[in-house]
Design a protein around this nucleic acid. Sequence first.
DNA 1: AGAAATTTGTTATTTTTTTCACACTGTTAG
DNA 2: CTAACAGTGTGAAAAAAATAACAAATTTCT
Lengths: 211, 211
Amino acid sequence: MKHLPHKTIERLSQYRRALLICLDKGQTHIYSHEIAKIQHITAVQVRRDLMLIGYTGTLRKGYNVKELIELIGEIIDSQEGINVAIIGMGNLGRALINYFAGKRSHLKIVASFDINPDKIGNTMSGVPCFSSDDMGKIIPEKNIKVGIMTVPAEFASQTTDALVKAGIKGILNYTPKPVTVPKEVYLEEYDMITSLEKVAFYVKLNEKEEE
Amino acid sequence: MKHLPHKTIERLSQYRRALLICLDKGQTHIYSHEIAKIQHITAVQVRRDLMLIGYTGTLRKGYNVKELIELIGEIIDSQEGINVAIIGMGNLGRALINYFAGKRSHLKIVASFDINPDKIGNTMSGVPCFSSDDMGKIIPEKNIKVGIMTVPAEFASQTTDALVKAGIKGILNYTPKPVTVPKEVYLEEYDMITSLEKVAFYVKLNEKEEE
DNA sequence: AGAAATTTGTTATTTTTTTCACACTGTTAG
DNA sequence: CTAACAGTGTGAAAAAAATAACAAATTTCT
Ligand SMILES: NC(=O)c1ccc[n+]([C@@H]2O[C@H](COP(=O)([O-])OP(=O)(O)OC[C@H]3O[C@@H](n4cnc5c(N)ncnc54)[C@H](O)[C@@H]3O)[C@@H](O)[C@H]2O)c1
Ligand SMILES: NC(=O)c1ccc[n+]([C@@H]2O[C@H](COP(=O)([O-])OP(=O)(O)OC[C@H]3O[C@@H](n4cnc5c(N)ncnc54)[C@H](O)[C@@H]3O)[C@@H](O)[C@H]2O)c1
């Protein structure tokens, strides 16, 4: 396999989640158009993605749910698992830790960091909170590869620098402040305001078109 | 102007945020490559986007920060503003309401909904919480156009249906459960697990390539 | 004043992503 | 048994997005 399109990676993760639900319901096989419907895309797109990862279904029966889940896992998960930290135990950080903790086995949240002394030393959803000053020590020690950044925007840059210095390999930045990392660190930024403004834009557009 | 690429819309929102920060700092002009650097894209891309919205900068001086902010506002905001509701006042819902409330003037969070009697009747960050049973009444009454969905995944579908029935025009779904809406409703889904898995994937990939 | 440097605006090109179109093949109904 | 059907797999085409290339214009330097 050469290299998978960016978008395919995202969709594979989404397919898997849909498939896990099907598996729970006891469904053994699924058609490309069923997956497509769930994800609001076309069946061809699904088949193409699966072609890219080299999975081939059964003619007229569709894809084997269990097999496909496993294959997607082989592609997008790393066997050893990846340790993750959340930096900034505020509203968003707490929501995330609650949500993620114990969900995905290969993505383990093993630490959180904050500067507020009231938070340092506590444990939340089984995840201990350390002082941000100790990132340089804890991150290599716990073999943390990925950091989810939920500090106030004004601390985004300095936190990023500290993470990079501590040897982090990937950052998911939920701060609205774009940050910069060296090219060996993978950076993903997501801004909720952008999503909301986008929805608002298309709502407005639809309304205009109706006139 | 014909129609702007999907991606351009997202970037415009991001440019604006970057520009607002510049404005605060007293910067009056900005070059395309400065904007580009902040957003991790190329200067050509920025110039192209601005070309699409018909903004033209000053040669050798760059773009007028204030003017550009205003133009972007004219393009992506609706003058009357858009009223927004959050459905599901759990961890994520509360984080969002705290975060959004009073941030963007044209996007006003005017209501929240929940089924938990302890939450109904309360006010958070100035936003009143109503019973989800009343969505059909409150949404048209308060002229709410967009709903941010943060209910537990298992309630995603029924909440969506209720929102659509109440006349909502756009939904931002933060639930990991994909939902279906009629085509006149704009739907945006975002799944944090997908983002995290994507980061993990590329981290793993980078490590492999280093070998 | 003229040359060099810098930045915009836009056309053309390339790359990436999506969709089309259709061959192929089990399955089912008659 | 066979024809119609319903699905997969994939090369080719189209569409969308990003990048390159460069003319034009303004500032700055000499
Ligand atoms: N709350 C949301 O729904 C939401 C949505 C989108 C984006 N965001 C962004 O996420 C970030 C956090 O939002 P929030 O609502 O949780 O804010 P918050 O103020 O509730 O939490 C911030 C936390 O970070 C800690 N902190 C401050 N400086 C730090 C540092 N240098 N190192 C480590 N921790 C530090 C604070 O002690 C606090 O616990 C902000 O940048 C915000 O813009 C939040
Ligand atoms: N917490 C996170 O960081 C996070 C991250 C990504 C996605 N999510 C998703 O967001 C959703 C909410 O997460 P959370 O952590 O806030 O969960 P939560 O359990 O803390 O909150 C859910 C809230 O929704 C309310 N609710 C339940 N049924 C409802 C209904 N029919 N109508 C209106 N309100 C209803 C509950 O009373 C509760 O207040 C979940 O689907 C979760 O998967 C959460």
